[in-house]
Write a protein that binds this DNA or RNA. Structure first.
Length: 832
RNA sequence: GCCCGGGUGGCCGAAUGGCAUAGGCGGGCGGUCUUAAAAACCGCUGUUCGAAAGAGCGUGCGGGUUCGAAUCCCGCCCCGGGCACCA
């Protein structure tokens, strides 16, 4: 048959193998025998179904599928499920615009996602699939909410919260970036509202310390550490006596530097501090303070956060007493003090704090240095011995003084050690329609009453109007809202807020383990077989939000006894993939530079698209898309398939592998094959170096092109080709399965991962690099077993070497066995 | 300002103390096939000098350590990301 008849046709090959996998349920795993042998849970972050998948989805599932296949073929039973983060604002905003029910647009998007994921040939266990918007699923989201509620981890409080005026809902702190709504980009407003929170701050310490137990990228851990923001210090009490001498008021402040307490020269409160107006009342500053507070509360939050903004503030006309030296410190209100952190009031030590220094200069306040430094420059925030403090502390190093001063405060009842966090409780209620209803009934007599478990799910009712009008659209479903109180039977009303969609994604990975369970959210014994996720894969944009919330849920659920106690972390290992760019920019419809996976797969096939995405560069880095690069990948896969098809037809009936001592090409290509097996295996198991793994298979294939293979035996060629197909299977499953089947009649996914044979990795000779003064001058073949002396002799035996050595004094000879000899010389006559 | 990444041919990248540029893309040159061209396939291609053999130079910049540095150390520059009035 002429070579031209072998035509690589992914449009025929890919659906054919996809049918086999679908018909046979190849990637399904049973919970019952999960206990037999090692298991692995490979998970990519679940997609938000909107429109159709984009190139980022293709990348994350290409990475995840490669890992899943590699784990399977190295002897693990792999759980690799799929689902949809189906609640959320885009579907709802679409509904507001078009009137189409969010469920309809979401379900349509899910269908499209399913179609494409199957078309990509991703090895999913489809029996476990679900969307978080299905009542059979959000029933358990509500159940978890109630578990948290019953144990005090979910609570309602009135607080200053972030209000997104465009989305018309509140947002969690984590969803506000630079003072703007993460999604809408609108400047958020501060509103005083009663909202539902999860008590994530109870877990601040564990969320911080247990980062050490997981294999996550260091920068993600750092981001979480910064977000949690733990600071050690002391709480110190400053007493005000001049507002009402009969009833002094104690104001606690948090400071990380109690060692500088003697240098406190004034005292500042946040504009939001509830006592500010009361303190100023009756003083000459009263009107000015009121105006300042009003202005601060309405001003743009981003402006206020600007470090370089000049310090502003107003005196309160009152004083507090510094507990260590009895000095009266003037009180101020200033917007550089934040109500959300610490106690909303600070002691100001201008000599040793940049911000206090700037304020002191602006208001001409005294500056007292209490720590010696290398020079006279203030402010000084470094360490040193104390000065200008009390006699018993002066001269002490400030670290030691810090402890001594806190001990003194404790004895006097004026302070104690304290830890502060930047982390705030997670605000989870949203005044929007398309989310999980909060399963609470508000009763005028009983208060907030949980919906009984037997009444779950609280099904999201249909409404006429999805537009939020400062309250949840659910409030308009009056028949739904009016209920009897489950406790007293009296007239009551349902909670009409829905939950943040990040609640849904905080536990979906548990549900996959036991997705068919209708009796419980999951069976802890089943979860114990799969959890924690062995390899989690997703975008770094979730470094704080989703990844912090999911860790909190896992710890809380374990504490409540719903998870085995040893499961403290959801994701044992995390990989964050980079974005695919085009011409150095994000792909977006606005820029018109979008590459759609659908057209890509239609044109080149799924194998080419997936392999190219992995080959383009290290998967954790951003990568620039190139149309011609894709074509190169298709050429390569086509070459593999054609050569395999040819070899299958033309070189039958030879043992595989075959090494004919009379044909040196056999040994050469066999060595290359084992080199590639070794290289791909370590690239896959140590790091996610898919790009170099694919490059190694390319090199291998280049060795056996008809022009290069020379007189190699048919059996050796078939071994090389089937090895190449086997190694490529995790990236390009269809063409690899087809080529492997043509060559061997076997199904590659049922074969164990190839193992490199030592005998072929170790060669009898190697190329010895010969250097003079570190410069390469020659290369010669040397026996692998050669002694140092023999290697040195080879160096001196080289004609090229002697040209450079002759006439000079040999100072020394460096020998690196298996690699090189470096002859160090000093010229006979020093060069001018 | 602080904390992470990163900077290597025309482009994406490989190499983490030992042959710099594996693999791919693109352009150029040469070849196979063809009546011819295109396509496809094969070979060469960092740069300077040189007819060639070969030599010099070359991993953001400047120093240093070392027999030997893209790799380690010190000081800069640039790009990307995160945090930032958090007391």
């Amino acid at each position: 048959m002429p070579a031209a008849d072998y035509h690589y046709d992914p449009a025929e090959i890919e659906p054919r193998w996809q049918r086999v996998w679908a018909d046979e349920g190849t990637w399904e795993v049973d919970n019952d025998d999960a206990g037999e042998g090692p298991t692995s849970y490979v998970l990519e972050m679940l997609p938000y179904p909107s429109g159709e998948p984009h190139i980022g989805h293709l990348k994350v599932y290409s990475v995840g599928d490669a890992v899943a296949h590699f784990h399977r073929r190295t002897g693990r039973r792999v759980l690799h499920p799929m689902g949809y983060d189906a609640f959320g604002l885009p579907a709802e905003n679409h509904a507001i615009k078009t009137g189409q029910h969010p469920r309809d647009s979401t379900d349509a998007a899910i269908k499209e996602f399913q179609r494409q994921f199957r078309r990509w040939g991703v090895s999913i266990d489809w029996t476990r699939e679900f969307g978080t918007h299905e009542p059979r699923v959000y029933r358990w989201t509500q159940w978890i909410f109630l578990q948290l509620f019953k144990h005090g981890l979910a609570y309602q409080k009135e607080a200053a919260v972030n209000w997104d005026p465009v989305e018309e809902t509140v947002l969690a702190n984590e969803q506000v970036v630079d003072g703007r709504g993460e999604r809408s980009g609108a400047l958020v407003e501060v509103r005083q509202l009663k909202q539902w929170f999860f008590r994530i701050t109870d877990y601040a310490d564990r969320l911080l310390s247990e980062l050490d137990s997981i294999r996550w990228p260091e920068h993600v851990k750092t981001m979480q550490r910064n977000w949690i923001g733990r600071s050690e210090g002391a709480e110190v009490v400053f007493r005000n006596e001049d507002l009402d001498p009969a009833h002094p008021i104690d104001y606690a402040v948090f400071t990380t530097r109690p060692d500088t307490l003697f240098g406190a020269t004034f005292f500042v409160m946040a504009p939001e501090h509830p006592d500010v107006l009361r303190l100023a009342a009756g003083t000459e500053h009263e009107d000015e303070v009121r105006a300042y507070v009003n202005h601060s509360l309405t001003a743009d939050k981003t402006m206020r956060g600007d470090v370089d903004k000049p310090k502003t503030g107003v005196p309160l006309g009152r004083t507090v007493t510094n507990p260590v030296n009895g000095k009266q410190l003037p009180m101020y209100v200033a917007d550089y003090v934040l109500m959300e952190y610490g106690t909303g009031a600070i002691m100001a030590v201008p000599a040793h704090d940049d911000r206090d220094f700037a304020f002191a200069q602006a208001f001409d306040l005294p500056i007292t240095r209490v720590i010696e430094g290398p020079d006279d420059v203030l402010p000084y925030s470094g360490d040193g011995p104390l000065m200008n403090s009390a006699a018993e502390f002066d001269g002490l190093h400030n670290r030691a003084a810090l402890e001594a001063i806190v001990q003194w405060l404790e004895r006097e009842g004026k302070g104690h050690l304290s830890v502060n966090y930047r982390l705030r409780d997670w605000l989870i209620s949203r005044q929007r329609y398309w989310g999980t209803p909060i399963p609470i009934i508000h009763c005028p007599t009983c208060g907030a009453v949980p919906v009984p478990d037997a009444d779950l799910p609280v099904v999201l009712p249909d409404v006429e109007d999805y537009k939020p009008r400062g309250r949840s659209p659910l409030a308009a479903a009056e028949d739904w809202v009016r209920v009897d109180c489950p406790q007293c039977g009296g007239a009551a009303k349902r909670e009409t807020d829905t939950m943040d969609t990040f609640v849904d994604s905080s536990w979906y990975f548990l549900r996959y383990c036991d997705a068919a369970n209708d009796e419980a959210a999951w069976d802890p014994a089943v979860v114990a077989r799969w959890m924690p996720v062995d390899q989690y894969i997703g975008g770094v944009e979730h470094a704080i939000l989703h990844l912090l919330y999911a860790r909190f849920f896992t710890k809380a659920l374990a504490d409540l006894g719903h998870l085995p106690a040893e499961i403290q972390e959801p994701f044992a290992a995390l990989f964050t993939q980079g974005m695919i760019l085009r011409d150095g920019e994000k792909m977006s419809k606005n820029r018109g530079n979008v590459v759609s996976p659908k057209t890509l797969v239609e044109r080149y096939g799924a194998d080419t698209a997936r392999s190219y995405i992995l080959f383009i560069g290290p998967p954790d880095q951003d990568a620039d898309w190139s149309d011609s690069g894709v074509e190169g990948m298709q050429r390569f896969l086509g070459r593999l398939w054609r050569m395999s098809a040819e070899a299958a037809d033309e070189l039958p009936d030879h043992p595989v592998p075959e090494i004919d001592p009379a044909r040196p090409d056999d040994e050469r290509i066999m060595r290359k094959a084992h080199w590639a097996i070794d290289k791909v295996t370590s690239n896959m198991s140590e790091r996610f170096n898919f790009n170099t793994a694919i490059a190694a298979v390319m090199e291998l294939l280049n060795e056996v092109t008809p022009a290069k293979r020379g007189a190699a035996s048919p059996g050796a060629v078939r071994f090389v080709l089937s090895s190449a197909a086997s190694l490529l299977f995790p990236f390009a499953p269809h063409v690899s399965a087809d080529a492997y089947h043509l060559l061997t009649g076997e199904r590659v996914w049922e074969q164990p991962w190839p193992s490199a044979d030592r005998e072929f990795l170790e060669t009898p000779t190697f190329e010895l690099v010969l250097q003079v003064n570190g410069k390469v001058r020659d290369r010669v073949q040397a026996p692998s077993q050669a002694s140092r002396e023999e290697l040195v002799a080879l160096a001196h035996g080289s004609e090229r070497m002697t040209q450079f050595i002759d006439g000079s004094e040999v100072v020394k000879e460096i020998v690196v066995p298996g690699k090189l000899v470096n002859v160090v010389i000093r010229p006979a006559r020093s060069a001018v």
